[in-house]
Design a protein around this nucleic acid. Sequence first.
DNA 1: GACTATGTATAACC
DNA 2: GGTTATACATAGTC
Lengths: 213, 213
Amino acid sequence: MALAGPRRTEIKMIERLSSRQVTFSKRRKGLFNKAADLSLRCGAEIAVIVFSNTNKMYEFSSTTMEHILSRYINHGAAAGFSMESPEKKPQDEPADKYELSSCDTLSAILLLQEHIAALNLDCSRMMGMQLDGLSLKELNQLEEQIREGIESIEKRKIEVQDYYKYKPSYLLEYSNHLDRNNSQFFYGTSSSAVSDCTESGQSNDFVDTSLHL
Amino acid sequence: MALAGPRRTEIKMIERLSSRQVTFSKRRKGLFNKAADLSLRCGAEIAVIVFSNTNKMYEFSSTTMEHILSRYINHGAAAGFSMESPEKKPQDEPADKYELSSCDTLSAILLLQEHIAALNLDCSRMMGMQLDGLSLKELNQLEEQIREGIESIEKRKIEVQDYYKYKPSYLLEYSNHLDRNNSQFFYGTSSSAVSDCTESGQSNDFVDTSLHL
DNA sequence: GACTATGTATAACC
DNA sequence: GGTTATACATAGTC
């Protein structure tokens, strides 16, 4: 008689390789089933990509992977631009931003590069570089911005210190895991909802980091 | 007294819109949790993309979406990406040498988005946001970086003040204009391919403003 | 958004 | 790869 069931299993990396592989197979299958279920029941379009420990790739997609990915790309490309030009009002989203078709790849790339240039400039300036052309007023704004950043960081440092002081280890598990992978996402916030056509503001994917100078 | 539980549910599209939406929310959350579990327990890298009926997008990714997707693209490109054409795909085709394949374009965009995500993260952190997952040491490094930035800005402010002091204003405007146009630097560093197999930590070195945390 | 009865996924074992 | 006991997910309901 098997007395075993899924005992209170702590959520952490399984050490034993064989167990890990078995668990991976079973759970991966379960995950794909869940995805298929959700897709069918709710008419959702779902893609799941999994890379195992051993760099093997597994995928599920309710329609075509390519279709979902290009849909994702277009969505992200559109949603990613909130502020490449500081002159523009960030809240007013002109309709044309969401009209990127999959054929507009070249312009999408150009826009992304523009976006990168702007972000690069912002980053550089916060590090005290590329300050040419900023007026005194703008320099003051920049400095103010940065000082607020430092304040937040100081606060966070205290939080982290307390956190480690009183750490419940089960809370650290996932964030530690993510730390190892150098991810910016924390467990609860890695899922985000962004509307396809009409967006009313909230977007977790791309934080508006523009300095608006 | 609620006598209900999940009765045997046939797997088909849920007709009632409200039920479908509720179910979608619950199951999507469940799916993402499963993905997170699997990722953590087995050290897998997982991405899930979901488009709802109403074209809302939701995503989960154990690391960054861009990283996983470009890994997917590269993997697929190397090992039989063509599912629809069972025939072989010779890579040495002089014909499309000067033509970007859709795969290349997609991966180019992903690379750019990954770049943007990294820059966004850097900028956010310098502004005191997105600090989750940074260790105390990293927070200190970040703060140090920023303080150096402030120092440079202070110095620049003095320069500018002197500039105003000793320069006729009609010359000032014009040179300010020139400064501004010259200050935008481009995405000059050639974008190196992101290595897939070796997870040697952060690989956004192509950003010269990277914080290297 | 919380509750609860019930179905489902799955860890340990074969 | 199959079985079973148990934890987990969740449909219907408030």
